[in-house]
Structures are given as C-alpha cells and as structure tokens.
Computed example of a mutant assay.
Amino acid sequence: MPTLLIALLIGLMMYRRTKRTIGAQKLVRSRLWFRTIVFGIIGCMFLYASFLHPVNFIADFVGLACGLVLAFYAVKHTEFEKRTDGWYYRTSLWVNIAVMALFIGRIAYKLLYHGAMNAPAPAPVNPIEMYGSDPLTIGIFFVLVAYYIRFFTFLLFKHKELNRTDSSALS
C-alpha cells in the first residue's frame, strides 16, 4: 500500500510538471527565487554528501556540465510574451522532455531495480547518504540542479529586463 501511494504521488507530480511544461508559464519573481534557493540548498546538501563518497565528485561535475548545456539550449530557445496580467514564457519543449525523461527514467529504474531484487533495501541512517552513494542518481540530480538554477536565474534577469523596457515604454 505505501508503494502505491508513493507511485500515485510521483504520478501526480509528473502530471502537474508536464502540464506546466507544455503551456506558457507566468513569470513570477517570488516563485523563481524560491525555486532557485531550494535547488541551491538541496544541491549543496548533495555536494556535501559527496564528501562521504569522493568518487561521486566526478558524477557531480558531469551532471553539472550536462545541466548547464541543457540550460544554455533552453535559454536560447525560450520565448516571452506580454499578456494583460504580466509576462509569460515558454521554454523549449525538447529540453523539458529531456529533463523529465532523465528524472522519470531514473525513478522508474530505481523502482524496478529494487522491486526486482525481492529484498527490502537496507534502511539508511541518512537519506542524503543513501542517494549520495549512487553516482548515476547523483549525476542525474546535478543535471537537474544545474539546469534549473541556471534557467531560473536567466528568467529572473529577463523578468527585470522586460519590466524595465515596459517602464521605459510607458514614460
């Protein structure tokens, strides 16, 4: 039963993320700041966990590099539009699909792999340590961290620029 609830929760999260990915999203500074800070804090925690498994530093930096490449492509292909209630952006559908496929694929692999093992996973003392011990998972996580932090900071600067041009156009 708990596995079913977790699967349903993950399914709901993926549905909401997919729904937001396809359409235009409103530029909201506070939401972008919050997400950037959350990804930064979680990224720092996982980077700290890499000290427990130094081999993971390679996965960390490969993930960061891949995430920055994806973010560069997303930044290059993001479109903005002015509506009556503010600015909206639409990012590259292909980049969002790639990021979501990495995330969903890794979750599916972990669930199928642990499900096929027929043995319960050992109870970790620290959840960060549990995820920090798998280089592939940590690498994919850092793809997400680098992508979202870079992309959200781009949106924050672009929002400021767009509002500045709106203000100068009204003057």
Rank of each mutant, 00 (worst) to 15 (best):
P122K: 11
D85C: 04
D166P: 00
L47W: 06
K76C: 01
C44T: 10
H114L: 12
L12G: 09
G115H: 12
Y131T: 02
R90A: 04
V69N: 02
G86N: 10
P127R: 05
L170M: 11
Y89W: 04
R90V: 03
A24P: 03
I104H: 00
P122R: 08
F151K: 08
A59D: 05
F61T: 06
A146I: 00
M45V: 14
V38I: 15
V55Y: 10
R17C: 02
G105L: 09
I37D: 03
W33S: 04
V69H: 04
W87Y: 15
I37L: 15
I6R: 05
I128S: 05
L32V: 08
T137K: 01
D85M: 04
L4N: 08
I6C: 04
A119C: 03
G43R: 05
S30A: 11
T91C: 02
V99S: 08
P120E: 14
A101D: 11
A121D: 10
R164K: 12
F154Q: 04
M14N: 11
P2Y: 07
F157N: 09
L144K: 06
Y89E: 05
I41R: 03
K26P: 07
M117K: 13
R106L: 15
H53G: 00
A24W: 15
K160M: 01
V55F: 08
I138L: 15
A7Y: 09
L112G: 13
S133H: 12
K76L: 03
V143S: 02
I37V: 15
E161D: 08
A59K: 07
